[in-house]
Simulated assay, not measured.
Amino acid sequence: MPAQSPRPVALVGYMGSGKSTVGRMLARGLGWTLVDLDRDIRRREGRSIPEIFSESGEARFREVEHEALAAALDGAERRVVACGGGVVLEPRNRELLRRADTVFLHEDIEALYERTRRPGRPLAAGGFADFERRYEERLPLYREVAGLRIHVGNRPARKVAKEIERWLKG
């Protein structure tokens, strides 16, 4: 159950779980602002996420991601934050996420793998074994920070957003 006063809502989950899409619908339904961390990072850095990874490395990306998350959650009532899939890897980020109403969008690994087979996803380029290893590494971290866990399945994003709204309203 979320806190009584409105706190920001953070959506976490593996790549392809629908964080940006559900976040957009949730923010619209609540009348709140959406912050898509990946979009914010691209704006801050003036380059794409694959470019950040290839030119500056994952460590630089994770530092910028932390800064963006801290800014997005800082005093941010009535804000929905769609996080990147690896945001939970950084302990400082997990601490920040505990201060928000955090929702884990859970999905089956096979569905996630199929959804992410396109260019522009820097950590999706490997095969299924690498994809699954990374997922298994992050799964307990998503669970650790989440106040609500939702299995997305093949449900429309608007239904998932409505379920989160009901949870927020108690």
Rank of each mutant, 00 (worst) to 15 (best):
R79N: 03
E63D: 13
Y142T: 10
R92L: 07
R39N: 10
V80N: 03
V9I: 14
L26F: 11
R149D: 07
L37S: 06
G29T: 13
E45K: 13
M25R: 10
G18M: 05
G127M: 12
P122Y: 01
H66C: 04
V12M: 11
A125W: 00
V35G: 00
M1K: 11
V80E: 05
A111Q: 09
V81P: 02
D108T: 06
A10T: 12
V145N: 02
V64R: 07
G18K: 02
P122S: 02
R166K: 15
F104I: 08
A3P: 07
I109S: 09
E77Y: 13
T116V: 12
M25F: 07
R115P: 02
E165L: 15
R143M: 12
W167Q: 09
T21G: 04
G57K: 07
E55L: 13
R47V: 09
V35L: 06
R134P: 00
M15V: 12
D38G: 14
R42E: 14
R7L: 14
R115V: 03
E110R: 14
D40L: 14
R78S: 12
L97D: 01
G16Y: 00
P50I: 05
R121C: 02
C83F: 05
W167M: 15
L112D: 00
D38M: 09
V87F: 08
E63P: 06
P140E: 07
E163R: 14
A129I: 09
G170W: 10
G126D: 09
L105W: 04
R117D: 02
R28Y: 11
